[in-house]
Design a protein around this nucleic acid. Sequence first.
DNA 1: TTACATACCTCGAAAACCGATGTATGTGTC
DNA 2: GACACATACATCGGTTTTCGAGGTATGTAA
Lengths: 111, 111
Amino acid sequence: MSDDTLKDLEKRWRKSALPLAILAVLGKAPSHGYGLAVALRDVLGAATPEGTLYPLLNGLERDGLAVAEWTIPESGPARKTYSLTKEGRAVLSKASAQWSQMSVNLGKLLS
Amino acid sequence: MSDDTLKDLEKRWRKSALPLAILAVLGKAPSHGYGLAVALRDVLGAATPEGTLYPLLNGLERDGLAVAEWTIPESGPARKTYSLTKEGRAVLSKASAQWSQMSVNLGKLLS
DNA sequence: TTACATACCTCGAAAACCGATGTATGTGTC
DNA sequence: GACACATACATCGGTTTTCGAGGTATGTAA
Protein backbone atom coordinates (compact mmCIF):
# COMPACT_ATOMS: atom_id res chain seq x y z
CA MET A 1 0.00 0.00 0.00
CA SER A 2 2.33 2.69 1.20
CA ASP A 3 5.17 2.89 -1.23
CA ASP A 4 8.45 1.69 0.12
CA THR A 5 9.58 2.88 3.52
CA LEU A 6 13.28 2.98 2.89
CA LYS A 7 13.87 1.71 6.39
CA ASP A 8 16.02 -1.34 6.56
CA LEU A 9 17.90 -0.75 3.39
CA GLU A 10 19.79 -3.96 4.05
CA LYS A 11 16.65 -6.01 3.67
CA ARG A 12 16.16 -4.77 0.17
CA TRP A 13 19.27 -6.06 -1.51
CA ARG A 14 19.00 -9.24 0.43
CA LYS A 15 15.75 -9.78 -1.38
CA SER A 16 17.06 -9.30 -4.83
CA ALA A 17 20.42 -10.83 -4.24
CA LEU A 18 18.51 -13.91 -3.25
CA PRO A 19 17.98 -15.52 -6.65
CA LEU A 20 21.59 -14.91 -7.59
CA ALA A 21 22.75 -16.31 -4.27
CA ILE A 22 20.63 -19.41 -4.74
CA LEU A 23 22.09 -19.98 -8.17
CA ALA A 24 25.57 -19.39 -6.83
CA VAL A 25 25.14 -21.92 -4.03
CA LEU A 26 23.71 -24.50 -6.39
CA GLY A 27 26.54 -23.77 -8.75
CA LYS A 28 29.00 -24.98 -6.15
CA ALA A 29 27.05 -28.11 -5.26
CA PRO A 30 23.50 -29.47 -5.55
CA SER A 31 21.48 -28.86 -2.45
CA HIS A 32 17.99 -29.07 -1.03
CA GLY A 33 15.74 -26.33 0.25
CA TYR A 34 16.54 -26.48 3.90
CA GLY A 35 20.27 -26.72 3.31
CA LEU A 36 20.01 -23.79 0.98
CA ALA A 37 18.28 -21.78 3.66
CA VAL A 38 21.18 -22.40 6.01
CA ALA A 39 23.82 -21.54 3.42
CA LEU A 40 21.94 -18.44 2.40
CA ARG A 41 21.77 -17.19 5.95
CA ASP A 42 25.54 -17.14 6.05
CA VAL A 43 25.99 -15.44 2.73
CA LEU A 44 23.29 -12.83 3.02
CA GLY A 45 23.50 -12.30 6.74
CA ALA A 46 19.82 -12.97 7.31
CA ALA A 47 17.44 -15.87 7.20
CA THR A 48 15.34 -16.36 4.10
CA PRO A 49 11.68 -16.91 4.98
CA GLU A 50 10.40 -20.28 3.84
CA GLY A 51 7.41 -18.65 2.23
CA THR A 52 9.87 -16.90 -0.06
CA LEU A 53 12.37 -19.67 -0.59
CA TYR A 54 10.18 -22.58 -1.60
CA PRO A 55 8.11 -20.79 -4.21
CA LEU A 56 11.36 -19.46 -5.63
CA LEU A 57 12.77 -22.96 -5.84
CA ASN A 58 9.66 -24.15 -7.64
CA GLY A 59 10.12 -21.32 -10.07
CA LEU A 60 13.69 -22.39 -10.69
CA GLU A 61 12.44 -25.81 -11.65
CA ARG A 62 9.54 -24.54 -13.70
CA ASP A 63 11.84 -22.29 -15.70
CA GLY A 64 14.26 -25.08 -16.39
CA LEU A 65 17.18 -23.60 -14.52
CA ALA A 66 17.31 -26.49 -12.09
CA VAL A 67 16.06 -30.03 -11.79
CA ALA A 68 14.78 -31.50 -8.57
CA GLU A 69 15.03 -35.03 -7.34
CA TRP A 70 13.65 -36.62 -4.21
CA THR A 71 16.27 -38.32 -2.14
CA ILE A 72 15.52 -40.49 0.86
CA PRO A 73 18.22 -40.36 3.47
CA GLU A 74 18.65 -43.37 5.78
CA SER A 75 17.37 -41.18 8.52
CA GLY A 76 15.23 -38.10 8.55
CA PRO A 77 12.60 -36.65 6.24
CA ALA A 78 12.83 -36.90 2.46
CA ARG A 79 14.73 -34.14 0.72
CA LYS A 80 14.16 -32.50 -2.58
CA THR A 81 17.57 -31.95 -4.04
CA TYR A 82 18.10 -29.32 -6.71
CA SER A 83 20.86 -29.27 -9.31
CA LEU A 84 21.49 -26.65 -11.94
CA THR A 85 20.76 -27.49 -15.54
CA LYS A 86 22.93 -26.34 -18.38
CA GLU A 87 20.61 -23.41 -18.82
CA GLY A 88 20.85 -22.67 -15.13
CA ARG A 89 24.60 -22.51 -15.40
CA ALA A 90 24.39 -20.20 -18.37
CA VAL A 91 22.10 -17.86 -16.49
CA LEU A 92 24.34 -17.96 -13.47
CA SER A 93 27.43 -17.11 -15.43
CA LYS A 94 25.76 -14.24 -17.21
CA ALA A 95 24.16 -12.88 -14.08
CA SER A 96 27.39 -13.25 -12.22
CA ALA A 97 29.24 -11.07 -14.71
CA GLN A 98 26.58 -8.40 -14.62
CA TRP A 99 26.42 -8.44 -10.88
CA SER A 100 30.12 -7.92 -10.42
CA GLN A 101 30.03 -5.08 -12.91
CA MET A 102 27.39 -3.31 -10.89
CA SER A 103 29.11 -4.23 -7.70
CA VAL A 104 32.26 -2.46 -8.85
CA ASN A 105 30.32 0.62 -9.89
CA LEU A 106 28.48 0.84 -6.63
CA GLY A 107 31.65 0.15 -4.68
CA LYS A 108 33.35 3.07 -6.35
CA LEU A 109 30.46 5.30 -5.43
CA LEU A 110 30.49 4.17 -1.84
CA SER A 111 34.18 4.60 -1.21
CA MET B 1 0.06 -13.81 -11.05
CA SER B 2 2.82 -16.27 -11.75
CA ASP B 3 5.40 -16.28 -9.03
CA ASP B 4 8.70 -14.87 -10.09
CA THR B 5 9.95 -16.04 -13.44
CA LEU B 6 13.59 -15.99 -12.47
CA LYS B 7 14.34 -14.74 -15.91
CA ASP B 8 16.13 -11.45 -15.90
CA LEU B 9 17.97 -12.05 -12.72
CA GLU B 10 19.77 -8.80 -13.34
CA LYS B 11 16.61 -6.83 -12.97
CA ARG B 12 16.12 -8.11 -9.49
CA TRP B 13 19.22 -6.87 -7.78
CA ARG B 14 18.97 -3.63 -9.65
CA LYS B 15 15.71 -3.09 -7.87
CA SER B 16 17.09 -3.59 -4.44
CA ALA B 17 20.38 -1.93 -5.05
CA LEU B 18 18.40 1.13 -6.03
CA PRO B 19 17.85 2.71 -2.62
CA LEU B 20 21.47 2.20 -1.68
CA ALA B 21 22.59 3.65 -4.98
CA ILE B 22 20.40 6.70 -4.49
CA LEU B 23 21.82 7.28 -1.05
CA ALA B 24 25.33 6.82 -2.39
CA VAL B 25 24.84 9.34 -5.18
CA LEU B 26 23.33 11.86 -2.80
CA GLY B 27 26.18 11.21 -0.41
CA LYS B 28 28.59 12.48 -3.04
CA ALA B 29 26.57 15.56 -3.88
CA PRO B 30 22.99 16.82 -3.63
CA SER B 31 20.99 16.19 -6.74
CA HIS B 32 17.49 16.33 -8.16
CA GLY B 33 15.32 13.52 -9.47
CA TYR B 34 16.12 13.71 -13.11
CA GLY B 35 19.84 14.05 -12.50
CA LEU B 36 19.67 11.09 -10.19
CA ALA B 37 17.98 9.07 -12.90
CA VAL B 38 20.87 9.77 -15.24
CA ALA B 39 23.53 8.96 -12.65
CA LEU B 40 21.72 5.79 -11.65
CA ARG B 41 21.57 4.59 -15.20
CA ASP B 42 25.35 4.63 -15.32
CA VAL B 43 25.83 2.91 -11.99
CA LEU B 44 23.18 0.24 -12.31
CA GLY B 45 23.40 -0.29 -16.03
CA ALA B 46 19.71 0.33 -16.63
CA ALA B 47 17.28 3.18 -16.49
CA THR B 48 15.16 3.56 -13.39
CA PRO B 49 11.50 4.03 -14.28
CA GLU B 50 10.11 7.35 -13.11
CA GLY B 51 7.19 5.64 -11.48
CA THR B 52 9.69 3.93 -9.23
CA LEU B 53 12.14 6.76 -8.67
CA TYR B 54 9.85 9.61 -7.64
CA PRO B 55 7.85 7.71 -5.04
CA LEU B 56 11.16 6.49 -3.63
CA LEU B 57 12.43 10.03 -3.39
CA ASN B 58 9.30 11.11 -1.58
CA GLY B 59 9.85 8.27 0.83
CA LEU B 60 13.38 9.46 1.46
CA GLU B 61 12.03 12.82 2.45
CA ARG B 62 9.16 11.41 4.47
CA ASP B 63 11.51 9.22 6.45
CA GLY B 64 13.83 12.08 7.19
CA LEU B 65 16.82 10.71 5.31
CA ALA B 66 16.88 13.63 2.91
CA VAL B 67 15.52 17.13 2.64
CA ALA B 68 14.18 18.57 -0.59
CA GLU B 69 14.33 22.13 -1.81
CA TRP B 70 12.91 23.69 -4.93
CA THR B 71 15.48 25.48 -7.00
CA ILE B 72 14.68 27.65 -10.00
CA PRO B 73 17.41 27.60 -12.61
CA GLU B 74 17.77 30.62 -14.91
CA SER B 75 16.51 28.42 -17.67
CA GLY B 76 14.48 25.26 -17.70
CA PRO B 77 11.87 23.71 -15.41
CA ALA B 78 12.09 23.96 -11.63
CA ARG B 79 14.07 21.28 -9.90
CA LYS B 80 13.55 19.61 -6.59
CA THR B 81 16.97 19.15 -5.11
CA TYR B 82 17.59 16.52 -2.46
CA SER B 83 20.33 16.54 0.16
CA LEU B 84 21.04 13.91 2.78
CA THR B 85 20.28 14.70 6.37
CA LYS B 86 22.49 13.60 9.23
CA GLU B 87 20.24 10.58 9.63
CA GLY B 88 20.50 9.88 5.93
CA ARG B 89 24.26 9.82 6.22
CA ALA B 90 24.10 7.49 9.18
CA VAL B 91 21.86 5.09 7.26
CA LEU B 92 24.12 5.28 4.24
CA SER B 93 27.22 4.49 6.21
CA LYS B 94 25.63 1.57 7.97
CA ALA B 95 24.06 0.18 4.83
CA SER B 96 27.31 0.63 2.97
CA ALA B 97 29.19 -1.50 5.46
CA GLN B 98 26.60 -4.24 5.35
CA TRP B 99 26.43 -4.19 1.62
CA SER B 100 30.14 -4.64 1.14
CA GLN B 101 30.08 -7.49 3.63
CA MET B 102 27.47 -9.28 1.61
CA SER B 103 29.17 -8.35 -1.59
CA VAL B 104 32.36 -10.06 -0.44
CA ASN B 105 30.48 -13.17 0.61
CA LEU B 106 28.65 -13.43 -2.65
CA GLY B 107 31.78 -12.68 -4.60
CA LYS B 108 33.55 -15.57 -2.93
CA LEU B 109 30.71 -17.85 -3.85
CA LEU B 110 30.69 -16.73 -7.45
CA SER B 111 34.39 -17.07 -8.09
C1' DT C 1 5.46 -36.87 25.84
C1' DT C 2 7.15 -32.79 25.18
C1' DA C 3 10.25 -30.23 22.70
C1' DC C 4 13.14 -29.17 19.05
C1' DA C 5 15.64 -29.68 14.66
C1' DT C 6 15.06 -31.23 10.11
C1' DA C 7 12.31 -30.87 5.86
C1' DC C 8 8.65 -29.81 2.74
C1' DC C 9 4.55 -26.96 1.11
C1' DT C 10 0.46 -23.40 0.29
C1' DC C 11 -2.57 -19.54 1.18
C1' DG C 12 -3.58 -14.77 0.95
C1' DA C 13 -3.01 -10.12 2.85
C1' DA C 14 0.12 -6.62 2.30
C1' DA C 15 3.76 -4.34 -0.02
C1' DA C 16 6.36 -2.88 -3.98
C1' DC C 17 6.92 -2.11 -8.82
C1' DC C 18 6.56 0.56 -12.87
C1' DG C 19 4.04 1.53 -17.47
C1' DA C 20 0.99 4.86 -18.81
C1' DT C 21 -0.34 9.27 -18.53
C1' DG C 22 -0.38 14.15 -17.42
C1' DT C 23 1.66 18.87 -16.56
C1' DA C 24 5.03 22.40 -17.84
C1' DT C 25 9.35 24.81 -19.70
C1' DG C 26 13.13 25.47 -23.10
C1' DT C 27 15.50 24.55 -27.49
C1' DG C 28 15.95 23.39 -32.26
C1' DT C 29 14.17 23.27 -36.87
C1' DC C 30 11.18 23.56 -40.96
C1' DG D 1 3.76 29.44 -35.90
C1' DA D 2 3.90 24.45 -35.49
C1' DC D 3 6.13 20.32 -34.24
C1' DA D 4 9.35 17.45 -32.11
C1' DC D 5 12.23 16.50 -28.39
C1' DA D 6 14.85 16.95 -23.95
C1' DT D 7 14.35 18.39 -19.32
C1' DA D 8 11.72 17.87 -14.98
C1' DC D 9 8.14 16.57 -11.72
C1' DA D 10 4.16 13.66 -10.26
C1' DT D 11 0.16 10.19 -9.61
C1' DC D 12 -2.82 6.25 -10.69
C1' DG D 13 -3.66 1.48 -10.49
C1' DG D 14 -3.05 -3.25 -12.48
C1' DT D 15 0.43 -6.63 -11.99
C1' DT D 16 3.95 -8.83 -9.48
C1' DT D 17 6.43 -10.10 -5.32
C1' DT D 18 7.01 -10.86 -0.54
C1' DC D 19 6.61 -13.60 3.54
C1' DG D 20 4.08 -14.60 8.04
C1' DA D 21 1.09 -18.00 9.42
C1' DG D 22 -0.37 -22.39 9.21
C1' DG D 23 -0.02 -27.30 7.92
C1' DT D 24 2.29 -32.17 7.34
C1' DA D 25 5.81 -35.40 8.68
C1' DT D 26 10.27 -37.79 10.60
C1' DG D 27 14.05 -38.39 14.00
C1' DT D 28 16.39 -37.35 18.37
C1' DA D 29 17.06 -36.00 23.01
C1' DA D 30 15.56 -34.72 27.63
